[in-house]
C-alpha cells in the first residue's frame, strides 16, 4: 500500500557513523543498528572499563550514565545514543587519582572481584547527586538493580556512606 505521508527516513540496517561525547571527549565509531551501546563502548571505543554481565538488563554491570542518568548499556542500542553525553568508569579518576567515591569503595571494602564495581560507582554517583545524604535504606533501594556476587553489600553500603560524608565535608 502506498502512503500519502512523506516518509523521510526509510529503515535500513546499514552501518552508520555515530558521534557521542564520552567522558567529555568527542568520539565517533561505526555501528549497525543492532549493536548494543555496551558493545559500542567496549569494542568500537575500546573503553573496556564498562563490564557486561547478563546482557538482558538484570545485573547492572553495564551501567553507564547517558545525559546524566544511569542507564543499562546492554539494553540500549548504540544508535539511540547518537549525540549523547556518556559517562563511564574511565571518566571518574582525574589525573590518575581516584575520585571520592572510588577511594571510599577501596577503603571500605566495597569490592572484591570488581566485576560489578564500574556499575556500582556510576550508580553511586547518580545517587549522591540526587540525594547527598542517603539513608542505608535509600542506598539499598537505589543500588537494588546492581547485583554483586562477592561483597554481600555491607561494604558497598559503607562505601557509599563514607563517600557521602567525604563529599559533605568537601
Amino acid at each position: 500500500m502506498s502512503s500519502t505521508i512523506d516518509v523521510g527516513t526509510q529503515p535500513t540496517d546499514d552501518q552508520r557513523i555515530l558521534r557521542m561525547t564520552i567522558n567529555g571527549v568527542q568520539r565517533r565509531g561505526i555501528a549497525e543498528p543492532r549493536m548494543l551501546l555496551v558493545d559500542f563502548i567496549r569494542h568500537e571505543l575500546q573503553l573496556t572499563g564498562t563490564h557486561v554481565g547478563c546482557e538482558h538488563g538484570v545485573c547492572g554491570a553495564c551501567t553507564v550514565r547517558v545525559d546524566g542518568e544511569v542507564v543499562r548499556s546492554c539494553i540500549m542500542f548504540a544508535v539511540q545514543a547518537e549525540g549523547a553525553q556518556i559517562e563511564t568508569v574511565e571518566g571518574l579518576a582525574k589525573d590518575g587519582e581516584l575520585n571520592v567515591v572510588q577511594q571510599a569503595f577501596r577503603q571500605e571494602h566495597g569490592l572484591q572481584c570488581g566485576f560489578c564495581t564500574p556499575g556500582m560507582l556510576l550508580a553511586t554517583e547518580s545517587l549522591l547527586a540526587e540525594n547527598p545524604d542517603p539513608s542505608e535504606e535509600e542506598i539499598r533501594d537505589y543500588l537494588s538493580g546492581n547485583v554483586c556476587r562477592c561483597t554481600g553489600y555491607v561494604g558497598i553500603v559503607k562505601s557509599v556512606q563514607a563517600a557521602a560524608k567525604q563529599r559533605s565535608q568537601a
Partner: peptide
C-alpha cells in the same frame, strides 16, 4: 546474547511512524 540484525529508523512525527509501521506491517 546479541539481537538478530534489523532495520532501524527514528520517526519524527506520529504520522511518519504510523506510515512506516504500515509499510512494514
Amino acid at each position: 546474547m546479541k539481537p538478530a540484525p534489523f532495520k532501524y529508523a527514528k520517526a519524527e512525527t506520529v504520522a511518519e511512524a504510523t506510515a512506516l509501521l504500515d509499510q512494514h506491517a
